[in-house]
Deep mutational scan, measured.
Amino acid sequence: MLDDRARMEAAKKEKVEQILAEFQLQEEDLKKVMRRMQKEMDRGLRLETHEEASVKMLPTYVRSTPEGSEVGDFLSLDLGGTNFRVMLVKVGEGEEGQWSVKTKHQMYSIPEDAMTGTAEMLFDYISECISDFLDKHQMKHKKLPLGFTFSFPVRHEDIDKGILLNWTKGFKASGAEGNNVVGLLRDAIKRRGDFEMDVVAMVNDTVATMISCYYEDHQCEVGMIVGTGCNACYMEEMQNVELVEGDEGRMCVNTEWGAFGDSGELDEFLLEYDRLVDESSANPGQQLYEKLIGGKYMGELVRLVLLRLVDENLLFHGEASEQLRTRGAFETRFVSQVESDTGDRKQIYNILSTLGLRPSTTDCDIVRRACESVSTRAAHMCSAGLAGVINRMRESRSEDVMRITVGVDGSVYKLHPSFKERFHASVRRLTPSCEITFIESEEGSGRGAALVSAVACKKACMLGQ
């Protein structure tokens, strides 16, 4: 009897593995994704193909990295998701002549009506938060230079001027797309009239992360975010950046690689679950690469896999709870928690219980395998993109072996128990001629924006502006 049951459990697990095998990517698959990513990057950089390229390769006008001589107080704003952060950054000489960066910050959550109302409502709310922060720190009387981390696709015309191309991540505030974001912020500050600010720089969160990590390690020339969304930036040779005049030196390019796949480059790798996630998203047909990796989508992918296993009578005796059938019910943090389970399955059992399920031991094991399959594919897909960037940098610099540091931020990278190990191992397999160091950014977005502002202020002083 026991043997029969054991055989049935083994057969069930084997069927589960057959279904989950769809998520496995072979090294040849990853090399294919990497080569296609490089081709799209090239198209994004070139003037004649930029418009139709899915990977936009947006110039950021960040050319210099901090040298350690900029000092002063800077205000930093960070808008990239449902939370908005205001930070005071003091850049100065530390002990023994070292450079020191001290920060104080406060988080504000953005109400739904500000995210989806008008641009005026959104930026009025942001300036209200700045006003509140300055009151708390008794700094209303000071006109501070301000660095703005704005983590949406922007076409820069200068370091302090950028046109919002399109909202992502659930934002829909009308009247912002096609307009200068810094102008919208300046107008809102003017409307309030109770404080003055000098907006000197606007950067993407990947750029802010790279600059913040450069402060720790001067070989950091790539910034990457794996959180709600997924994106990367890197220092490109100016001669390859056709959208900006000049051939000397390097400029940081914001790849906006989340949109890779929007022209069909990933079609052969998309599964039924991916198509369902895409169809029910706020932007169907867009940001397809990001939807395979980002935390906004990972939990939902797992939920759809679990429903398939229920329908195949391989999980929960073929019956799903009402909660499990509800879109968004299986949160991405559950994926991390399930994979963090120590082996007694308590954590998995508790999560499934909150979803109205009474799982068996085998159910718990199957749910864990589903989570591992989805998150491992995410790590491997992400590795193909980064390997594409790094191999490109090595080739354009004609280096036999390139040493490089990548600064990384984002909740999936930082909080998932195995993502970074799987990701690092896969990147290294795909970049055999590179020695890569990964560092995690601390308060990256805010500190990085302030350091970019410090560079901009120093330049302005040198130019006598």
Rank of each mutant, 00 (worst) to 15 (best):
L45S: 10
R447Q: 03
G162P: 00
G249S: 13
Y215D: 14
E237H: 05
G299Q: 06
R327S: 10
S174P: 00
M87R: 06
Y297S: 10
A21F: 06
M393P: 04
G343V: 11
S411D: 04
L357Q: 12
H141E: 07
V182E: 02
F334R: 13
F23G: 07
K31H: 12
V62N: 03
G295V: 01
K102V: 06
A460F: 15
K414L: 15
V71M: 14
D78P: 04
G343C: 06
G183L: 04
G410P: 02
L355S: 09
Q38E: 13
R447Y: 08
E279T: 15
L134E: 02
A282P: 10
R7M: 14
I159N: 00
R5Q: 11
Q239G: 14
C233S: 11
A460L: 15
S373I: 11
I110L: 12
R155Q: 06
I436A: 13
A454N: 01
A387H: 04
T65N: 15
G385L: 02
G328L: 11
D158N: 04
S280K: 14
Q347F: 12
D198Q: 15
V338G: 06
A449D: 00
L266I: 15
V62R: 03
C252S: 05
L266C: 14
L451P: 04
E177S: 00
L146V: 03
E67Y: 12
L307N: 14
Y234G: 01
A384Q: 08
Y214H: 15
L430Y: 05
L315F: 11
G299Y: 01
F334I: 06
R186L: 02
E265G: 11
Q219I: 14
L270K: 09
M34P: 04
G299C: 04
G175N: 02
D247R: 05
P111L: 05
T405S: 15
D135S: 07
R368P: 00
E157N: 01
S54K: 05
M121H: 07
D29W: 14
L79K: 01
I404K: 06
G464Y: 10
E339M: 07
S373G: 10
V241T: 05
S445M: 00
E265C: 08
K104C: 11
S398I: 09
G388D: 03
G264D: 07
V367E: 00
R345E: 11
E245G: 13
A320V: 14
M202W: 01
T342R: 11
A454G: 04
K346M: 09
K169P: 02
S453E: 03
E9H: 10
M121D: 05
V55D: 10
D409P: 04
E268H: 12
M402N: 12
P284Q: 07
C230V: 11
E256C: 01
G223H: 00
D311W: 07
G264W: 08
F316M: 08
N391Q: 09
T49P: 03
S373Q: 10
F150E: 02
H156E: 03
L314T: 11
D217C: 00
A119H: 04
A188R: 02
D409N: 06
A378D: 00
H50S: 05
T437K: 12
M298F: 08
M197L: 14
N166M: 12
R345V: 09
L77P: 00
M197V: 15
I366K: 08
S396A: 10
E28P: 14
A378M: 01
G97E: 12
G299R: 04
K136P: 03
F152W: 00
G92V: 06
E290I: 00
A259L: 03
M87W: 02
D194H: 03
K31A: 11
F84G: 04
T116A: 07
Y61T: 05
R345D: 15
C213Q: 03
N83A: 03
K140T: 06
D365M: 12
I390S: 06
L164Q: 01
N179M: 10
S151V: 07
I404W: 06
R397Y: 12
S212Y: 02
E290L: 00
C434V: 13
S398T: 09
Y125G: 12
E237K: 14
L47F: 12
C364T: 09
H105A: 10
L185W: 01
P417S: 12
E17C: 11
V207C: 12
K291M: 08
